[in-house]
Every structure is written in C-alpha cells, then in structure tokens.
Amino acid sequence: MGQNLNLADHEFNQALKMIEAEEIGQEEKVDMLMQIAMGIQQKPKSPGQILNAVKLYEKALELCPQSQILTRARIEARKGTAYQAIPDTGTGFLFKAQAQYEVALPVLIGSGLPEEVAEAEMNLGVVLQALAGFQKIPITECISAYQRSLRVFERNKYPTEYAILHNNLATAFLSIPMNDERAKMREALAVQSFEAALEVVNLVDHPSEYAMLQNNLGNALQYASSSHPVENNLRALEAYDESLKVRTRHDTPLEYANTISNKANCLRNLPDNPENPGSGNHGRLMQARLLYREAQQIFAAYGELGKENVIKEVLQDIEQDLGTSQAGSRGGKGFGEERV
C-alpha cells in the first residue's frame, strides 16, 4: 500500500513539475493534467489522493483558455466525479460535485457527445440521490436525471450503464414515502426497473450484481401493495433463491445474512398451501425461524447489533405464532435495497 501511495504522490508531483516545462504546449499540459488526475482517481488509496486529483483538474482549468469551452466542460465534469468520490459524512463534497455537473452539462449538451452528456447525467443522478437521502433536495430530481441518461444508455449498446441506471431508479422510486395515490405505480415501476436491469445482468458474467439485483427485486415484490400478495411473495422467494446462488455464508456472510433475513420475512407471510391460504403457515414459520436464527448468529458475529436486535424481536413474535399454530400476515424488516 505504501508503494501505491508513493507512486500516486510521485505522479502528482511530476504533474506539477510538468506545468513549468516550457517545451510543452498549453494544450498538451491540459491534456496531461487531466489524464494524470484520472489515473490517480481510478484506484485511490486515501481521500488525500482524490483531493490531489481535484487540484490537478483545477490546474488544468487555469491553463485551459476560456475559449475552449468544451474542453473546460469536460474538465469540470471530471472534477465533479472527483468530488463525488471523496468520503464524507456530510453533504459538502456532494454539493460541490452537483455544482460541477450543472456547470458542465449545458456545454456538453450543446457541443459534446451524447455519451458524455448521459454519463454526466448519470453521475449527477447519483449525487442528487445521495443529497435526497439527507433531505436536501426532492428525490424526483435524481429520477429525472436517470431518465434523461437512459435516452442514450439503452439496453443493447450500453448494458452496464443501463443496469446501473435501472437499479438506482428502482431504489429511488422505493425511497419515496408510500402514502399517496401514486404509491402503487411507483412500486410497480421499481419492480419493472429491477427486472429491466436483470435483462442484461446474468449469474455467470456479473455474479455480485446479479445477486444484489435479485435481492432488491425480492424486496420490491415482497413489500409492494398488491391485490395478489401470495403471487408476489412466491416470486420474491424465487428472487431470493437466485441471489443465494451467489451469496454464501462463507464468501459473503453479511450479504448472505441480509438475503436470508429477507427470505424469512417472505416465508413468514406465506401460507403453507398457496391454494388454500386459510390452512395456516406453521411449516413456513418453521423455515423462517431457522433462517432468522442463522442470520442472527452472523449479525452478532460481525457486530451488526441493530440488525441482531431486530431479529430477536421477530423471533419472539414467531415463537408466539408457532404456539398458536396459526398466524396472519405480519410485517417483517427488510435488509436492504442496494444502490450502485
């Protein structure tokens, strides 16, 4: 790690020295500064390295003539990605990233490539979604940015971006409080978006993304308001089982625990015989109890005390339900919509 840190610092220092070299033209200096900044930013080992990338973008802007509006917009957009990547518990760097994209986008829209515009819109959407999480802006702003990006990043040409956008769109839809007349529509749109992402993400080529999307799809189906809850829960079970083809206790213990907890919630609300819902769900509750207990052990082992305590409460309810041999539908606690 020390070697990587020294290499990144060396590249940064060399970039600053290169600015002083008279034999290198201004245009070449600007391009080199951008390339070095992007290289430092790709695999940063510390927040300081990302800040160094920001400084190089700023140097590039100082050297870039005001007349080169498209080049300047491209630098501004790259600077936005650097601010976006800086770890922060607050919103300061997020607002700086937002400002960079909003400066760059009008120029990119007018003079840049469609892919550049779509990438900036996608990155802006991620920033706006994070700011919405802090209740700083309406979540609808990030949804609009994602939808604009999808005009270019369509399924066949750009499958990776298409999948990322649909996953993030779905999580944005689900983050809106479900207390108005459009709630059911947003839930349906979230399910559609997860399914759209899964059209281009598969188990063999993208196992971790596939598992995440299947887990999220299961949650969306399980908690959707529907006149067909049994059918939705059966589809959710299938999605969780697909996720568990990748997520294992050995390789991904916390993700595995999240998914088996979600599966247990689903089992808890399914009748043993879907054709005869009135027959009870003693068998499903027994399966759910085993999964909850396993998840509880994992959360305890990894210090996830909040999740462990939630499961303790649910297990107490299940013991009561099993004691009566009958149980109605109960709400559980879902562990996690995940965003790329």
Results as ranks from 00 to 15, higher is better:
Arg247His: 12
Ala197Leu: 01
Gly2Ile: 11
Pro44Cys: 04
Gln26Lys: 11
Asn202Leu: 05
Thr91Gly: 00
Leu254Tyr: 10
Thr91Gln: 01
Leu51Gly: 05
Ser279Val: 10
Tyr210Ala: 07
Met122Cys: 08
Ala21Val: 10
Leu108Phe: 02
Leu169Met: 08
Pro87Val: 01
Ala220Leu: 04
Glu121Asn: 05
Ser279Ile: 11
Glu28Arg: 14
Ser227Leu: 12
Ala15Gln: 03
Ile260His: 08
Glu337Tyr: 15
Glu119Trp: 02
Ser46Pro: 09
Glu76Gly: 04
Ala77Ser: 07
Val200Asn: 01
Glu275Trp: 08
Val340Lys: 14
Leu165Asp: 07
Ala190Val: 04
Gly303Phe: 04
Phe12His: 09
Leu291Pro: 02
Arg148Asn: 09
Glu11Asp: 13
Gly125Met: 07
Leu56Ser: 11
Leu291Asp: 06
Gly25Val: 10
Asn309Ala: 08
Ile19Met: 05
Asn167His: 10
Ser46Ile: 04
Glu338Trp: 15
Phe335Leu: 14
Met1Ile: 08
Gly332Asp: 13
Val340Ile: 14
Asn309Ile: 11
Phe153Trp: 04
Gln129Asp: 10
Glu154Ile: 09
Gly280Leu: 02
Glu275Phe: 07
Asn281Phe: 03
Ser329Asp: 14
Lys157Arg: 15
Ala132Asn: 03
Val127Cys: 01
Tyr146Asp: 00
Asn265Ile: 02
Glu102Ala: 02
Ala145Pro: 05
Ala37Val: 00
Ala118Thr: 03
Leu217Ser: 13
Phe299Val: 00
Asn156Thr: 10
Gln68Arg: 09
Arg74Val: 00
His166Pro: 03
Ala8Leu: 02
Arg293Ala: 15
Tyr83Met: 01
Val107Ile: 11
Leu290Val: 15
Asp317Lys: 15
Leu213Phe: 08
Gly112Val: 00
Ala15Glu: 04
Ile176Cys: 13
Ile164Pro: 10
Gly90Ile: 00
Leu16Ala: 11
Asp241Arg: 12
Glu199Pro: 08
Gln26Ser: 13
Asn258Gln: 08
Asn215Arg: 09
Asp317Arg: 15
Leu169Gln: 14
Asn269His: 10
Lys312Cys: 13
His282Val: 08
Leu221Val: 05
Asn309Cys: 05
Leu169Asn: 07
Ile24Leu: 06
Cys142Phe: 01
Pro65Tyr: 06
Asn156Lys: 14
